[in-house]
Structures are given as C-alpha cells and as structure tokens.
Design a binder for these strands. Structure first.
Lengths: 199, 199
DNA sequence: CCATAAAGCTAATCCCATTAGCCGCGATCG
DNA sequence: CGATCGCGGCTAATGGGATTAGCTTTATGG
C-alpha cells in the first residue's frame, strides 16, 4: 500500500494536535491512527504504545511551555516578569487544552529531552524568583508555590470549576498580584537547597 | 445464586475504598464488581454506568471534604482558620488519593446532594475569607485563588511533581503563609458578586 | 402460598490496546 | 540495471473493559 511516510516526530505532533481538539483523555491510538490515515497497529512502528506516546507528548508540550515561559520573562524582572510569565502560562493552557495536562506528567528519566524540558520550565520560574532576591530553599519553596497557584488556577478553569462567569481574568490577575506580594515579603530563612531537590 | 445485598450506597462506598487503594484512574467497573463478589453487569442494577459512578463518587468525596474543611475552620478565624483549613485539605487529599481527584469534577446539576456538597465546600472557604473582611467580588476572587493554590499544590504533590524531597511540608506552610499575607492586603475593589457566580 | 419486583446471572457486542507475523516498496550496493 | 533487504505498512488474533438484552431466582408482602 502507499507509504504515508510517518516517523516519531509526525506521530507525536499529530497526537498533540488531536489532543487539543478532542481532549487529553480522548486521545486514543485508534483516533490518532485514523487521523494519520493508517491502521492502528502501524503506529507501533513509531511509538512503543499508548504510555510511550503519552510520555513523548509530555516532552513535547513541556518543551513548548518552557520556551514560552522563558520568552515571556526575557527582558523583564520582578513583578513585570512574574505577570508576563503567568499570562504566558495560562495562555498556553488555554490555547492547548489537550497538551497542557500532558505537561503535568513527571519527566521520564530515560528521555533526556524530556528531562531537559522539565528543567527549563522549572528553571524559568526559578529565574523569575531570583529577581525577588530568593535563592536556595526559599526559592525552592517559592517555585513550588508559584507552580501550585498557576497550575491550580488553570486546571480548575479548564475543568469548568469557576462556573460561567466572565470575570475569570480579573480573578487570575488578582491571584498573581497576591503571589507577587507574597514573594516580596517571602520569609528569608535558610541557605542552600540540596542540588537533588526538585522544586 | 445467593444475593449479596448491594445497593447504591454500598457500591459507591466500595468504589471510594477501591479508588483509594488502586488510584482514581484504575477504578474500573470490572475491578469493583470483583471486589464486591458480583459479576460486572450486576452493577448496572445500582448505577447507570461508569460515568454515573464517577459522579456519585464525586458527590461522596466532595461531601466528605466539605465536612472536614468546615470542621477544621470551626471556632477559628483569620490566619488560624486558614491554616487549619489548608491542613485539613491536604490531609484529606493524602489520606484519600483516589477520592480526592473525584472532588474536582464539577457537581452534577441533576444531583441535589452533589450540588449541596459543592456549595458546602466552597462555602467553607468563603466563610474563612469573610474573616479577612472580604466580601462580594473580592471574596469570589480570593476563594478562587485559595482553591487554586491548595488544589495546585496537592495535585502536584500527588503526581510526584516535587521530587523526593522531604521538605514538602515546609513548602506547603509557606504557601499558606503567603496566601494569608495576600488576603490581609487583598485589594478591596468592588461590591457585590452576582449571585450566579460560582467562586 | 403465590405474585411480583428486584437482584443477580450469562451471552453478545463494541471499542481500544497489544502482539505476531506477513508483504511489498524503495533505497542501496554490486 | 537489477537483486537485496530493511522498514513501514497491513491483517488477524487476543484480551480487557463497558454496555445492553434478556433470563432466572430470590425475597417479600398481600
């Protein structure tokens, strides 16, 4: 039969597009194969299975998100950087409702690209917080706090947890303003975070 | 054959126990039926299907969480109430790793108990924030912010997103302290939230 | 004691994931 | 130019879960 000419790249990229259209939970090898004009088992020539595809998708989405966060923060500092990054974060989640959930999967240690993408994403947040004078354990805690706030808001919003109100933008900006304030007065406690600690 | 004597209550309760043991994603009608000593299709006499079971489980878990939040906040105010409630929230999520994800499903409008449970949970948070002098739109925004922070942290923790570090407690307490500070200085902006607005 | 509703069952169907094994296209090498 | 061989596609088969249909049996209440 005519060769379609797939490779892992094209398969994973199409998976990302499909996930954004039908939702992360509805991303299925069967649907993906149909989309690519190929029989389901043919996908196994490019990905090891559904789990592996999910991990590859996670690596892709995490890399994209990391890039957007880094770009948003570039050339800014303090509250400016925080707001720009927060907007970029929510923006990505809304533009890519299927990819975003994939970014929450913990990076696969066996996939260097995945690991690097995760480090870049966390690193982007970490860098912004250095702008508040936070380092070491303080920065680790602050990074976790910021990730929590942004991820929590964005995932509640995606789940429809905020009802139909149109005032969600305002709520988000106030949350970010609250985090900004918190980071300004973040308790300066201890010195060095263990290098092994994942923020 | 000997009747087992199931009803919707027992089925949903066993589903909750099973979810906590094997994880929300691994909760399956097949596994549940096995656990109850019954053939899979027999479950359809008590629940309409997998989706309906998930909604009933959500109602159960949301009600439990609402009760624990309310209890934690009882007799406290301001930062005390906030810290107690935050601890109760995380505690619930850690004691019930399978039920907790169910609480994030938006309440089924057709199930009054589910709706009430959701209102109680949000109401508990809302009440604590009134202790900061927040009302109307301000309280709506603050409620969304607090839910985001708590849910975000707890779900990242459950996903293993914080690595293996043992210092997660400290990070959580600092996040809560940051929210406390933010609520103390929360911008007092507008008056009344639309009654229809879901925080 | 019987009628009936409810609670179980088996069987059948459908969808998805996975594995095994076949086949032809096409790039490469002699 | 033609033979080869690896790779990318295929079909078929298996197994697990959800759902529906329809049968049987148990309790229970009149």
């Amino acid at each position: 039969m005519p060769r379609v000419g797939l490779n892992q790249q094209t398969v994973v990229r199409e998976a990302a597009r499909l996930a954004d259209e039908v939702g992360y939970q509805q991303l299925t090898l069967a649907a993906l194969a149909g989309r690519l004009g190929v029989a389901l088992p043919s996908l196994y020539k490019h990905v090891r299975g559904a789990d592996a595809l999910a991990r590859k998708l996670s690596a892709l989405a995490t890399a994209e998100l990391a890039t957007e966060l880094t770009t948003a923060a570039a050339g800014r500092a303090g509250g400016d950087a925080l707001r720009a990054m927060a907007d970029a974060y929510r923006d990505y989640a809304r533009r890519h409702p299927g990819r975003y959930p994939a970014t929450q999967q913990v990076p696969d240690p066996a996939d260097p690209e995945h690991v690097v993408a995760g480090e870049r994403a966390v690193g982007a947040i970490y860098a912004v917080l250095r702008g508040y004078g936070l380092t070491g354990d303080d920065a680790v805690d602050a990074t976790r706090a910021l990730r929590s706030a942004l991820h929590g808001f964005v995932s509640l919003e995606a789940a429809g947890g905020f009802g139909l109100s149109r005032e969600v933008d305002r709520s988000y900006h106030r949350l970010v303003a609250g985090m900004d304030l918190a980071f300004q007065s973040w308790p300066r406690a201890r010195g060095t975070a263990d290098q092994a600690d994942q923020p």
